[in-house]
Design a protein around this nucleic acid. Structure first.
Lengths: 213, 213
DNA sequence: ATAATATCCGGACTGCAGTCCGTTTAGTCT
DNA sequence: AGACTAAACGGACTGCAGTCCGGATATTAT
Protein backbone atom coordinates (compact mmCIF):
# COMPACT_ATOMS: atom_id res chain seq x y z
CA UNK A 1 0.00 0.00 0.00
CA UNK A 2 1.76 3.08 1.30
CA UNK A 3 5.48 3.29 1.59
CA UNK A 4 5.65 5.26 4.79
CA UNK A 5 8.67 5.42 6.99
CA UNK A 6 8.61 6.95 10.44
CA UNK A 7 8.27 10.64 9.87
CA UNK A 8 11.03 12.57 11.60
CA UNK A 9 8.98 15.39 13.04
CA UNK A 10 12.06 17.32 13.96
CA UNK A 11 15.77 16.77 14.16
CA UNK A 12 16.37 17.65 17.78
CA UNK A 13 15.47 14.53 19.71
CA UNK A 14 16.14 14.39 23.43
CA UNK A 15 19.13 12.14 23.36
CA UNK A 16 19.73 13.63 19.97
CA UNK A 17 22.21 12.27 17.54
CA UNK A 18 24.39 15.30 16.76
CA UNK A 19 25.48 14.27 13.33
CA UNK A 20 23.09 12.42 11.12
CA UNK A 21 22.55 14.80 8.24
CA UNK A 22 24.05 14.36 4.85
CA UNK A 23 27.08 16.55 4.17
CA UNK A 24 29.21 18.09 6.88
CA UNK A 25 28.76 17.34 10.57
CA UNK A 26 27.21 19.90 12.89
CA UNK A 27 29.59 22.51 14.17
CA UNK A 28 30.44 22.12 17.83
CA UNK A 29 29.11 25.51 18.90
CA UNK A 30 25.87 24.76 17.10
CA UNK A 31 25.56 21.44 18.91
CA UNK A 32 26.21 23.09 22.26
CA UNK A 33 23.59 25.74 21.59
CA UNK A 34 21.06 23.15 20.53
CA UNK A 35 21.44 21.34 23.84
CA UNK A 36 21.27 24.63 25.71
CA UNK A 37 18.11 25.58 23.87
CA UNK A 38 16.31 22.27 24.31
CA UNK A 39 17.15 22.24 27.99
CA UNK A 40 16.01 25.82 28.49
CA UNK A 41 12.85 25.18 26.49
CA UNK A 42 11.85 22.26 28.68
CA UNK A 43 12.54 24.33 31.78
CA UNK A 44 10.38 27.15 30.49
CA UNK A 45 7.50 24.86 29.56
CA UNK A 46 7.71 23.50 33.08
CA UNK A 47 7.62 26.96 34.61
CA UNK A 48 5.31 28.91 32.33
CA UNK A 49 3.35 26.30 30.44
CA UNK A 50 3.62 25.93 26.68
CA UNK A 51 1.60 29.07 26.02
CA UNK A 52 3.86 31.10 28.28
CA UNK A 53 7.04 30.29 26.41
CA UNK A 54 8.18 33.06 24.12
CA UNK A 55 11.08 32.97 21.73
CA UNK A 56 12.68 35.94 23.50
CA UNK A 57 12.49 34.31 26.90
CA UNK A 58 13.93 31.15 25.45
CA UNK A 59 16.85 32.99 23.89
CA UNK A 60 17.60 34.79 27.11
CA UNK A 61 17.31 31.68 29.26
CA UNK A 62 19.59 29.71 26.97
CA UNK A 63 22.02 32.61 26.82
CA UNK A 64 21.96 32.88 23.06
CA UNK A 65 20.76 35.45 20.57
CA UNK A 66 17.25 35.44 19.20
CA UNK A 67 18.47 34.68 15.72
CA UNK A 68 19.96 31.45 16.99
CA UNK A 69 16.61 30.32 18.32
CA UNK A 70 14.97 30.87 14.97
CA UNK A 71 17.79 29.29 13.01
CA UNK A 72 17.44 26.21 15.18
CA UNK A 73 13.68 25.81 15.18
CA UNK A 74 12.49 27.91 12.29
CA UNK A 75 9.44 29.14 14.12
CA UNK A 76 7.52 28.84 17.31
CA UNK A 77 5.63 25.92 15.81
CA UNK A 78 8.93 24.25 15.02
CA UNK A 79 10.03 24.61 18.60
CA UNK A 80 6.86 23.02 19.89
CA UNK A 81 7.11 20.17 17.40
CA UNK A 82 10.68 19.55 18.43
CA UNK A 83 9.61 19.29 22.05
CA UNK A 84 6.90 16.85 20.98
CA UNK A 85 8.99 14.79 18.61
CA UNK A 86 9.89 11.95 20.93
CA UNK A 87 6.35 11.36 22.15
CA UNK A 88 5.04 11.78 18.65
CA UNK A 89 7.46 9.28 17.14
CA UNK A 90 6.64 6.78 19.83
CA UNK A 91 2.93 7.18 19.14
CA UNK A 92 3.44 6.82 15.41
CA UNK A 93 5.48 3.69 15.94
CA UNK A 94 2.78 2.14 18.03
CA UNK A 95 -0.12 2.69 15.68
CA UNK A 96 1.84 1.70 12.60
CA UNK A 97 3.98 -1.18 13.81
CA UNK A 98 2.94 -1.92 17.38
CA UNK A 99 0.77 -4.66 18.82
CA UNK A 100 -2.98 -4.87 18.22
CA UNK A 101 -5.53 -3.51 18.68
CA UNK A 102 -3.69 -0.27 17.89
CA UNK A 103 -1.23 -1.78 15.50
CA UNK A 104 -1.71 -4.16 12.58
CA UNK A 105 -3.47 -7.43 13.23
CA UNK A 106 -6.76 -6.31 14.71
CA UNK A 107 -9.85 -5.63 12.58
CA UNK A 108 -9.81 -2.12 11.10
CA UNK A 109 -12.75 -0.88 13.12
CA UNK A 110 -11.11 -1.92 16.35
CA UNK A 111 -7.89 -0.28 15.29
CA UNK A 112 -9.80 2.89 14.55
CA UNK A 113 -11.41 2.85 17.96
CA UNK A 114 -8.07 2.21 19.61
CA UNK A 115 -6.47 4.97 17.58
CA UNK A 116 -8.92 7.53 18.91
CA UNK A 117 -8.58 6.30 22.45
CA UNK A 118 -4.81 6.52 22.31
CA UNK A 119 -4.93 9.87 20.67
CA UNK A 120 -7.17 11.18 23.42
CA UNK A 121 -4.75 9.94 26.04
CA UNK A 122 -1.90 11.50 24.12
CA UNK A 123 -3.65 14.85 24.05
CA UNK A 124 -4.42 14.66 27.74
CA UNK A 125 -0.70 14.35 28.35
CA UNK A 126 0.90 16.53 25.68
CA UNK A 127 -2.05 18.56 24.53
CA UNK A 128 -0.71 21.94 25.58
CA UNK A 129 2.35 21.53 23.42
CA UNK A 130 0.37 20.10 20.55
CA UNK A 131 -2.11 22.94 20.70
CA UNK A 132 0.65 25.53 20.88
CA UNK A 133 2.26 23.94 17.85
CA UNK A 134 -0.95 24.05 15.85
CA UNK A 135 -1.79 27.54 16.99
CA UNK A 136 1.42 29.02 15.62
CA UNK A 137 1.20 27.05 12.41
CA UNK A 138 0.11 28.73 9.20
CA UNK A 139 -1.41 25.57 7.82
CA UNK A 140 -2.40 23.01 10.45
CA UNK A 141 -3.46 20.51 7.83
CA UNK A 142 -0.15 20.05 6.14
CA UNK A 143 2.01 19.33 9.14
CA UNK A 144 3.69 15.97 8.51
CA UNK A 145 2.17 14.40 11.59
CA UNK A 146 -1.32 15.57 10.67
CA UNK A 147 -0.93 14.18 7.16
CA UNK A 148 0.18 10.86 8.57
CA UNK A 149 -2.78 10.53 10.94
CA UNK A 150 -5.11 11.47 8.16
CA UNK A 151 -3.70 8.81 5.88
CA UNK A 152 -3.83 6.27 8.63
CA UNK A 153 -7.49 6.92 9.32
CA UNK A 154 -8.25 6.90 5.63
CA UNK A 155 -6.46 3.59 5.25
CA UNK A 156 -8.39 2.05 8.13
CA UNK A 157 -11.67 3.29 6.69
CA UNK A 158 -10.90 1.65 3.37
CA UNK A 159 -9.86 -1.55 5.07
CA UNK A 160 -13.13 -1.53 6.96
CA UNK A 161 -14.96 -1.47 3.66
CA UNK A 162 -15.92 2.18 3.74
CA UNK A 163 -16.21 3.23 0.14
CA UNK A 164 -17.86 6.66 0.20
CA UNK A 165 -15.08 9.24 0.03
CA UNK A 166 -12.68 8.00 2.69
CA UNK A 167 -10.48 11.04 2.30
CA UNK A 168 -13.18 13.44 3.42
CA UNK A 169 -14.49 11.11 6.08
CA UNK A 170 -10.98 10.86 7.48
CA UNK A 171 -10.92 14.64 7.55
CA UNK A 172 -14.09 14.71 9.60
CA UNK A 173 -12.89 12.05 11.97
CA UNK A 174 -9.50 13.62 12.55
CA UNK A 175 -11.18 16.95 13.20
CA UNK A 176 -12.82 15.35 16.20
CA UNK A 177 -9.44 14.49 17.64
CA UNK A 178 -7.78 17.88 17.37
CA UNK A 179 -5.99 18.92 20.55
CA UNK A 180 -7.70 22.27 20.91
CA UNK A 181 -11.13 20.67 20.69
CA UNK A 182 -10.38 17.82 23.06
CA UNK A 183 -8.76 20.13 25.56
CA UNK A 184 -11.75 22.42 25.43
CA UNK A 185 -14.10 19.54 26.06
CA UNK A 186 -12.13 18.34 29.05
CA UNK A 187 -10.82 21.55 30.58
CA UNK A 188 -13.70 23.92 29.91
CA UNK A 189 -16.68 21.64 29.58
CA UNK A 190 -15.37 19.25 32.22
CA UNK A 191 -16.10 16.12 30.27
CA UNK A 192 -14.08 13.07 31.21
CA UNK A 193 -11.62 11.54 28.74
CA UNK A 194 -13.58 8.31 29.10
CA UNK A 195 -16.64 10.05 27.82
CA UNK A 196 -14.68 11.36 24.86
CA UNK A 197 -13.47 7.85 24.13
CA UNK A 198 -16.98 6.49 24.31
CA UNK A 199 -18.26 9.13 21.92
CA UNK A 200 -15.41 8.42 19.52
CA UNK A 201 -16.27 4.74 19.62
CA UNK A 202 -19.87 5.57 18.87
CA UNK A 203 -18.90 7.86 16.02
CA UNK A 204 -16.55 5.51 14.20
CA UNK A 205 -18.82 2.53 14.76
CA UNK A 206 -21.70 4.31 13.12
CA UNK A 207 -19.55 5.66 10.33
CA UNK A 208 -17.55 2.55 9.49
CA UNK A 209 -19.35 -0.23 11.30
CA UNK A 210 -22.43 -0.85 9.20
CA UNK A 211 -20.75 -1.72 5.94
CA UNK A 212 -20.79 -4.99 4.13
CA UNK A 213 -17.62 -6.89 5.01
CA UNK B 1 -37.45 23.92 24.04
CA UNK B 2 -34.79 26.59 23.87
CA UNK B 3 -35.56 30.19 24.28
CA UNK B 4 -33.16 31.54 21.70
CA UNK B 5 -33.51 34.89 20.12
CA UNK B 6 -31.44 35.93 17.15
CA UNK B 7 -27.97 36.40 18.48
CA UNK B 8 -26.68 39.87 17.69
CA UNK B 9 -23.19 38.93 16.59
CA UNK B 10 -22.14 42.51 16.59
CA UNK B 11 -23.73 45.91 16.82
CA UNK B 12 -22.46 47.46 13.64
CA UNK B 13 -24.84 46.27 10.96
CA UNK B 14 -24.54 47.63 7.45
CA UNK B 15 -27.55 49.87 7.49
CA UNK B 16 -26.91 50.08 11.17
CA UNK B 17 -29.34 51.54 13.63
CA UNK B 18 -27.22 54.09 15.46
CA UNK B 19 -29.08 54.12 18.74
CA UNK B 20 -30.53 50.92 20.01
CA UNK B 21 -28.64 50.36 23.25
CA UNK B 22 -30.12 50.98 26.66
CA UNK B 23 -28.99 54.21 28.27
CA UNK B 24 -27.62 57.18 26.37
CA UNK B 25 -27.65 57.42 22.60
CA UNK B 26 -24.41 57.13 20.67
CA UNK B 27 -22.48 60.33 20.36
CA UNK B 28 -22.45 61.82 16.90
CA UNK B 29 -18.68 61.67 16.44
CA UNK B 30 -18.74 58.04 17.46
CA UNK B 31 -21.46 57.31 14.93
CA UNK B 32 -19.54 59.10 12.22
CA UNK B 33 -16.39 57.16 13.01
CA UNK B 34 -18.26 53.89 13.03
CA UNK B 35 -19.49 54.48 9.53
CA UNK B 36 -16.05 55.60 8.44
CA UNK B 37 -14.54 52.47 9.90
CA UNK B 38 -17.04 50.02 8.45
CA UNK B 39 -16.71 51.61 5.06
CA UNK B 40 -12.92 51.57 5.18
CA UNK B 41 -12.92 48.00 6.44
CA UNK B 42 -15.02 46.78 3.53
CA UNK B 43 -12.76 48.63 1.12
CA UNK B 44 -9.69 47.04 2.62
CA UNK B 45 -11.15 43.54 2.56
CA UNK B 46 -11.92 44.16 -1.08
CA UNK B 47 -8.38 45.30 -1.80
CA UNK B 48 -6.24 43.11 0.45
CA UNK B 49 -8.42 40.19 1.38
CA UNK B 50 -9.47 39.52 4.94
CA UNK B 51 -6.03 38.29 5.95
CA UNK B 52 -4.42 41.43 4.58
CA UNK B 53 -6.44 43.82 6.70
CA UNK B 54 -4.53 45.12 9.70
CA UNK B 55 -5.85 47.31 12.45
CA UNK B 56 -3.26 49.96 11.65
CA UNK B 57 -4.17 50.09 7.99
CA UNK B 58 -7.81 50.32 8.94
CA UNK B 59 -7.19 53.20 11.32
CA UNK B 60 -5.18 55.07 8.74
CA UNK B 61 -7.67 54.47 5.96
CA UNK B 62 -10.57 55.61 8.09
CA UNK B 63 -8.58 58.61 9.28
CA UNK B 64 -8.96 57.82 12.94
CA UNK B 65 -6.59 56.78 15.70
CA UNK B 66 -5.79 53.18 16.44
CA UNK B 67 -7.45 53.41 19.83
CA UNK B 68 -10.72 54.23 18.14
CA UNK B 69 -10.56 51.09 16.06
CA UNK B 70 -10.12 48.93 19.13
CA UNK B 71 -12.76 50.77 21.13
CA UNK B 72 -15.20 50.11 18.32
CA UNK B 73 -14.46 46.47 17.60
CA UNK B 74 -12.61 45.28 20.65
CA UNK B 75 -10.25 43.13 18.68
CA UNK B 76 -9.44 41.93 15.22
CA UNK B 77 -11.86 39.07 15.73
CA UNK B 78 -14.54 41.58 16.67
CA UNK B 79 -13.92 43.48 13.47
CA UNK B 80 -14.28 40.37 11.37
CA UNK B 81 -17.43 39.34 13.17
CA UNK B 82 -18.90 42.75 12.62
CA UNK B 83 -18.24 42.46 8.91
CA UNK B 84 -19.92 39.06 8.98
CA UNK B 85 -22.84 39.99 11.14
CA UNK B 86 -25.41 40.61 8.43
CA UNK B 87 -24.73 37.38 6.58
CA UNK B 88 -24.53 35.50 9.82
CA UNK B 89 -27.84 36.82 11.12
CA UNK B 90 -29.51 35.98 7.86
CA UNK B 91 -28.18 32.44 8.00
CA UNK B 92 -29.27 32.05 11.60
CA UNK B 93 -32.72 33.27 10.76
CA UNK B 94 -33.05 30.77 7.99
CA UNK B 95 -32.08 27.67 9.88
CA UNK B 96 -34.08 28.62 12.95
CA UNK B 97 -37.23 30.17 11.52
CA UNK B 98 -37.05 29.76 7.77
CA UNK B 99 -38.76 27.33 5.44
CA UNK B 100 -37.98 23.60 5.35
CA UNK B 101 -35.87 21.65 4.82
CA UNK B 102 -33.47 24.04 6.55
CA UNK B 103 -36.02 25.48 8.94
CA UNK B 104 -38.57 23.78 11.16
CA UNK B 105 -41.06 21.42 9.54
CA UNK B 106 -38.78 18.94 7.84
CA UNK B 107 -37.58 15.74 9.54
CA UNK B 108 -34.53 16.35 11.73
CA UNK B 109 -32.17 14.33 9.58
CA UNK B 110 -33.11 16.29 6.51
CA UNK B 111 -32.67 19.52 8.40
CA UNK B 112 -29.23 18.37 9.47
CA UNK B 113 -28.26 17.57 5.91
CA UNK B 114 -29.58 20.91 4.73
CA UNK B 115 -27.76 22.69 7.53
CA UNK B 116 -24.43 21.32 6.42
CA UNK B 117 -25.10 22.08 2.80
CA UNK B 118 -26.03 25.67 3.58
CA UNK B 119 -23.09 26.05 5.87
CA UNK B 120 -20.76 24.87 3.13
CA UNK B 121 -22.23 27.40 0.74
CA UNK B 122 -21.89 30.08 3.39
CA UNK B 123 -18.22 29.26 3.88
CA UNK B 124 -17.59 29.28 0.16
CA UNK B 125 -18.89 32.84 0.12
CA UNK B 126 -17.73 34.34 3.42
CA UNK B 127 -15.12 31.83 4.48
CA UNK B 128 -12.16 34.20 4.43
CA UNK B 129 -13.78 36.50 6.91
CA UNK B 130 -15.02 33.65 9.05
CA UNK B 131 -11.61 32.06 9.12
CA UNK B 132 -9.94 35.36 9.95
CA UNK B 133 -12.42 35.82 12.78
CA UNK B 134 -11.70 32.40 14.22
CA UNK B 135 -7.96 32.74 13.75
CA UNK B 136 -7.74 35.83 15.91
CA UNK B 137 -10.08 34.46 18.54
CA UNK B 138 -8.68 33.16 21.82
CA UNK B 139 -11.45 30.63 22.22
CA UNK B 140 -13.13 29.62 18.98
CA UNK B 141 -15.61 27.40 20.78
CA UNK B 142 -17.29 30.05 22.85
CA UNK B 143 -18.10 32.53 20.14
CA UNK B 144 -21.86 33.13 20.27
CA UNK B 145 -22.39 31.96 16.73
CA UNK B 146 -20.41 28.76 17.31
CA UNK B 147 -22.40 28.02 20.44
CA UNK B 148 -25.63 28.52 18.55
CA UNK B 149 -24.68 26.16 15.72
CA UNK B 150 -23.56 23.62 18.22
CA UNK B 151 -26.86 23.78 20.09
CA UNK B 152 -28.79 23.59 16.85
CA UNK B 153 -26.98 20.46 15.74
CA UNK B 154 -27.38 18.93 19.18
CA UNK B 155 -31.09 19.70 19.11
CA UNK B 156 -31.52 18.11 15.70
CA UNK B 157 -29.61 15.02 16.83
CA UNK B 158 -31.92 14.62 19.81
CA UNK B 159 -34.96 15.14 17.64
CA UNK B 160 -33.69 12.46 15.31
CA UNK B 161 -33.62 10.04 18.20
CA UNK B 162 -29.89 10.11 18.76
CA UNK B 163 -29.40 9.31 22.42
CA UNK B 164 -25.69 8.65 22.83
CA UNK B 165 -24.09 11.90 23.98
CA UNK B 166 -25.53 14.40 21.52
CA UNK B 167 -23.37 17.18 22.91
CA UNK B 168 -20.14 15.47 21.92
CA UNK B 169 -21.52 14.23 18.65
CA UNK B 170 -22.56 17.78 17.82
CA UNK B 171 -18.99 18.83 18.56
CA UNK B 172 -17.66 16.29 16.08
CA UNK B 173 -20.14 17.25 13.43
CA UNK B 174 -19.55 20.98 13.76
CA UNK B 175 -15.81 20.37 13.58
CA UNK B 176 -16.37 19.06 10.08
CA UNK B 177 -17.93 22.36 9.06
CA UNK B 178 -15.27 24.74 10.32
CA UNK B 179 -14.29 27.35 7.77
CA UNK B 180 -10.58 26.67 7.89
CA UNK B 181 -11.12 22.99 7.20
CA UNK B 182 -13.63 23.48 4.41
CA UNK B 183 -11.52 26.14 2.76
CA UNK B 184 -8.50 23.88 2.89
CA UNK B 185 -10.44 21.06 1.29
CA UNK B 186 -11.65 23.26 -1.54
CA UNK B 187 -8.75 25.65 -2.10
CA UNK B 188 -5.80 23.39 -1.41
CA UNK B 189 -7.14 19.92 -2.07
CA UNK B 190 -9.34 21.13 -4.92
CA UNK B 191 -12.40 19.21 -3.83
CA UNK B 192 -15.71 20.52 -5.08
CA UNK B 193 -18.27 21.93 -2.65
CA UNK B 194 -20.68 19.33 -4.00
CA UNK B 195 -18.35 16.59 -2.88
CA UNK B 196 -18.18 18.15 0.58
CA UNK B 197 -21.95 18.24 0.73
CA UNK B 198 -22.19 14.63 -0.30
CA UNK B 199 -19.72 13.58 2.35
CA UNK B 200 -21.60 15.56 4.97
CA UNK B 201 -24.82 13.83 3.96
CA UNK B 202 -23.09 10.48 4.26
CA UNK B 203 -21.69 11.38 7.65
CA UNK B 204 -24.87 12.59 9.29
CA UNK B 205 -26.94 9.83 7.75
CA UNK B 206 -24.69 7.21 9.24
CA UNK B 207 -24.49 8.98 12.56
CA UNK B 208 -28.12 9.90 13.03
CA UNK B 209 -29.92 7.87 10.42
CA UNK B 210 -29.95 4.39 11.81
CA UNK B 211 -31.75 5.04 15.06
CA UNK B 212 -35.09 3.71 16.17
CA UNK B 213 -37.69 6.37 15.64
C1' DA C 1 51.05 27.81 12.61
C1' DT C 2 48.49 30.34 9.32
C1' DA C 3 45.19 31.31 5.97
C1' DA C 4 40.80 30.50 3.90
C1' DT C 5 35.86 29.77 4.15
C1' DA C 6 31.59 28.00 5.24
C1' DT C 7 28.83 28.20 8.99
C1' DC C 8 27.06 30.15 12.91
C1' DC C 9 26.06 33.98 16.08
C1' DG C 10 23.72 38.03 18.03
C1' DG C 11 20.84 41.67 18.42
C1' DA C 12 18.84 45.52 15.99
C1' DC C 13 14.85 45.94 13.08
C1' DT C 14 9.99 45.32 11.13
C1' DG C 15 5.09 44.48 11.39
C1' DC C 16 1.44 43.25 14.09
C1' DA C 17 -2.29 43.11 17.99
C1' DG C 18 -3.57 45.12 21.87
C1' DT C 19 -3.16 48.67 26.00
C1' DC C 20 -2.92 53.17 28.33
C1' DC C 21 -3.67 57.71 29.43
C1' DG C 22 -3.53 62.70 28.70
C1' DT C 23 -6.43 65.53 25.70
C1' DT C 24 -10.50 66.90 23.16
C1' DT C 25 -15.29 67.31 22.35
C1' DA C 26 -20.40 66.39 22.19
C1' DG C 27 -24.28 66.80 24.87
C1' DT C 28 -26.42 68.90 28.97
C1' DC C 29 -27.56 71.86 32.60
C1' DT C 30 -27.98 76.65 34.41
C1' DA D 1 -23.86 81.80 26.08
C1' DG D 2 -20.87 79.51 29.46
C1' DA D 3 -19.64 75.87 32.46
C1' DC D 4 -19.58 71.02 33.37
C1' DT D 5 -19.02 66.04 32.60
C1' DA D 6 -19.00 61.77 30.62
C1' DA D 7 -17.67 59.83 26.57
C1' DA D 8 -14.69 59.49 22.72
C1' DC D 9 -10.24 60.38 20.72
C1' DG D 10 -5.40 59.52 19.18
C1' DG D 11 -1.05 57.98 19.18
C1' DA D 12 2.81 56.53 21.96
C1' DC D 13 3.90 52.26 24.19
C1' DT D 14 4.40 47.11 25.17
C1' DG D 15 5.06 42.33 23.94
C1' DC D 16 5.41 39.15 20.47
C1' DA D 17 6.99 36.46 16.09
C1' DG D 18 9.91 36.61 12.58
C1' DT D 19 13.88 38.79 9.43
C1' DC D 20 18.47 40.49 8.27
C1' DC D 21 23.23 41.13 8.01
C1' DG D 22 27.87 42.52 9.77
C1' DG D 23 30.93 40.18 12.65
C1' DA D 24 32.81 36.07 15.12
C1' DT D 25 34.32 31.27 15.01
C1' DA D 26 34.99 26.35 14.11
C1' DT D 27 36.96 23.58 10.75
C1' DT D 28 39.90 22.37 6.95
C1' DA D 29 43.75 22.85 3.78
C1' DT D 30 48.52 24.12 3.23
Amino acid sequence: MFRVSLIPIRSGSSSGSPSSSGSGAERSDAARNRELLLCAARQLVEECGADGVTMDKLAERAGVGKGTVFRRFGSRAGLMMTLLSDAEAEFQGRFMFGPPPLGPGAPPLERLIAFGAERIRYVMEYGELARAAEASLHNRFEAPAAVLWHRHIEHLLRSAGFDADPWLMAMSLSATLEPERLLHAVRVQHLSPERLEESWRELVTRVAGGVEG
